[in-house]
Design a protein around this nucleic acid. Structure first.
Lengths: 203, 203
DNA sequence: GGTGAAAGTTACCAGCAGTAAGAAACCTGG
DNA sequence: CCAGGTTTCTTACTGCTGGTAACTTTCACC
């Protein structure tokens, strides 16, 4: 699945066939999908058709890889959930669709999601927050705007956004380990909790 | 910090000076507090004054260790939060105290919390859920009872409990990386979100 | 007193993150 | 045209960790 590569020491023979960062990241996603969240950097290198030092040069170590993949995953999930509310204003139905889309997106990228949200044992919790932060930032903006438009205090937007993202992440992990549970029911229940919560005072 | 140990091959010379599981788990907590979430089993063995195979015999591998520590941590956090509402019925003030107690408990066991909630890369998400599940179970019971007493549908209790626990975990991770933030303000904001959410219909 | 079970330790293996040093092609100045 | 530097990649290694096999010593029982 990887392009034909030199497999010989020294500078590649052709012109500018340099391996770029995205090529490595694509390979990493395939490996994680195949081997699960415990995938090794060595396997990533093999899948990319290169050797380890290339991986380290292009994306850095394990922590940086997780961070880069978190960025990609966050983009995809934001896109999936944005489609769910598609311009429409925030209401209970659109919120339920958002939760549902989030669950399905996590299920689609299951192994990648587990890789990104788990681990990163060494450096503190910063690694763990990367996906959350990227998901949170646009949500916080939307929330602050919406709260203001409803005549409420927008100050809570940041904390609430992190709370909501955490709620969604936990529900996702829980749900993907309970496949028998109907996605619509879970989405409906959680969106109820969220919707009523958002209406809160805190003027 | 560890008891005097044989440090010699073969069965210990005295009577029944067997090393028990809790001794190893205590050592593990000390090491994690000292070395951070990346603590190794070898370090745990040294701290416990024994060798690695003992650790494997008493608690199992890394996954089992995380699970055992999750159980202990869950018990402590449940105790801390139970004290916060102490018999009193569920209301906005007690909920705020609960969130506050949760945040402080996480901060107190910061490294342990990160160890338990992170990692466990190999086996799926089961490891990650262990703390959540233990925290969720009593919460779900309380919630179901309370919903019923309010004339609402208690069916949502399970999903809501996981959502709330996820929210609290994410807020905790976020908060402990932002020490300048006042704990009371965060607790107040999050409890507002929760309290209003819980009032929801879903008859 | 001999023999098996109990309770440890030593010594190892495999795999992984991360890095230093080397090799082949290209490029540039003389 | 060719010598030396630069680019681009590989080989080969270190150090550490999770996990296990095999050995060693004592106890308990007959």
């Amino acid at each position: 699945m990887s392009s034909a590569s030199p497999r010989r020491p020294g500078r590649p023979i052709g012109g500018q066939l340099v391996i770029d960062r995205d090529h490595v990241l694509d390979a990493a996603e395939r490996v994680i999908k195949r081997d699960g969240p415990g995938a090794s950097l060595e396997a990533v290198a093999v899948e990319a058709g290169v050797t380890k030092p290339i991986v380290y040069d292009r994306v850095g170590g394990r922590a940086e890889l997780a961070d880069a993949l978190a960025e990609r995953l966050a983009d995809r999930m934001i896109e999936a959930t944005e489609d769910a509310i598609a311009g429409e204003t925030l209401n209970q139905a659109s919120l339920s669709r958002l939760v549902r889309a989030n669950l399905l997106a996590v299920a689609e990228h299951r192994e990648l999601f587990l890789y990104v949200t788990g681990g990163n044992t060494e450096q503190t919790a910063i690694g763990r927050l990367s996906l959350a932060e990227r998901s949170t930032t646009p949500l916080a903006k939307t929330l602050a705007f919406w709260r203001k438009s409803q005549g409420h205090d927008p100050k809570v937007a940041e904390a609430w956004s992190f709370g909501i993202v955490g709620m969604l992440q936990m529900i996702s992990v829980w749900w993907i380990t309970q496949p028998e549970r109907a996605v619509d029911e879970v989405a409906s229940q959680i969106s109820d909790l969220m919707w009523n919560g958002l209406q809160g005072p805190r003027k």
